[in-house]
Amino acid sequence: MESSAPARETAGGPQHAFGERTRARRAIGVIVAAALLIGSGFFFGGFFRFVDTIVNYQTPSPLAADGIVVLTGGAERITGAIELMTAGKARRLLISGVHPDTSATRLGRMVEAEPDMMACCVDLDRRAANTIGNALETAKWARRNGFLSLIVVTSAYHMPRSMLELSHAMPDIRLIPYPVTRPGLTLGNWSEDRSVILLLLQEYLKYTATRLRLSLGGVDGLAELVGGTFG
């Protein structure tokens, strides 16, 4: 009788340990699943807010500023900026991110701009290679001209990230968004077009990375990573 109790304890020991390990694995699984669910909620919640901002951009009226900056990437951006200049919405225009081999004359022909306006009132920035560079070069240009307000022209999906970079580079200058949309890109029905969904997701990831970098104070190493990877 005395020898049977230890035998039962010995037999039950491994089973008890196995049960504890199983419960621990289940608990870890529940925690991981909850974390993934919460993380997904934050990600997609932020994404939908991002898209809502893009779709519902409203340009102030009346629209006027000291200068205009257009971030290159599509002819519709430059066309929109030239139209603003022609309408007298600002005194000077910076086209940022121009290819080194592209002349003002060629740009003017592309968007049917008046040669006199291109000669007198349009500056070209050929140094910027990405959105971070756009912001830095625009800040230099605005301060050199003594501007206190700028109209920012770029694609609607690119605007949130551009405004982050520009406001970080020149917090003392008022920025007015003027989003444009390239032909064939319908943002109002974005959820029905797989290519538009992918475009917006990609831009949202870039925007999120930019927010992270700037929240860390624009760390140089991370800035180089984000600039080289995301542009």
Rank of each mutant, 00 (worst) to 15 (best):
V55R: 07
T59W: 13
K140D: 00
F230T: 07
L198W: 08
R21W: 14
S61L: 11
W141M: 02
E76W: 05
S162G: 13
A27P: 03
R91S: 10
V226S: 00
H158D: 13
L94S: 04
P183T: 01
L36Y: 14
P6N: 08
G227I: 09
T22G: 13
Y178D: 14
S61F: 08
L124F: 05
D116L: 04
M110T: 05
R8S: 00
G227P: 14
P100W: 00
L71D: 05
T79V: 13
T210D: 04
L71I: 11
V69F: 09
S155V: 02
H158S: 03
L37M: 12
T229S: 10
S162K: 11
K140Y: 01
A7N: 10
M1H: 09
S162D: 15
V69Y: 12
S40N: 14
Q15M: 03
R211T: 06
D220L: 12
L212P: 09
I28P: 05
D123P: 15
R213G: 10
G88R: 01
I28S: 11
L225S: 08
M85K: 06
I176L: 08
L166Q: 07
E165L: 15
A64D: 02
I82Y: 06
G133W: 07
V122T: 04
V180A: 10
V180Y: 10
L225Q: 13
P179M: 05
T186H: 05
G227E: 08
A119T: 01
L225A: 15
L93S: 05
L185G: 01
T10P: 03
V98Q: 08
Q58K: 13
E20H: 14
P160A: 12
A104W: 00
A17V: 07
G188W: 00
H158I: 09
R127E: 03
R21D: 01
L222W: 15
T131N: 06
R182Q: 15
G74R: 01
N189S: 12
P160H: 09
G46R: 00
E2S: 02
A209S: 14
L199S: 10
D52W: 06
T102E: 15
R77Q: 09
I82R: 00
T22F: 11
F18I: 00
L93D: 03
P179R: 03
A128T: 15
M1Y: 07
L185W: 04
G29C: 11
P179A: 06
H168C: 09
F43D: 08
V69M: 08
N56A: 04
F48N: 13
G88P: 03
T79C: 05
L214A: 03
G39A: 14
W141S: 04
T86P: 07
L94T: 09
I38M: 03
G73N: 03
V51F: 04
M1T: 13
R213Q: 10
T154M: 08
G217T: 01
T86I: 08
S61A: 11
P177L: 01
Y204M: 03
T186A: 08
S191A: 15
Y204K: 00
T186Y: 06
G19M: 12
C120K: 15
V70C: 15
I28G: 02
S40P: 05
E76R: 01
R194F: 04
D123H: 10
G73S: 09
R25T: 03
R194H: 04
D172K: 11
P179T: 07
V70A: 06
V51K: 03
E9N: 15
T59K: 02
I151E: 14
E165G: 07
L198H: 15
D52A: 09
Q202P: 00
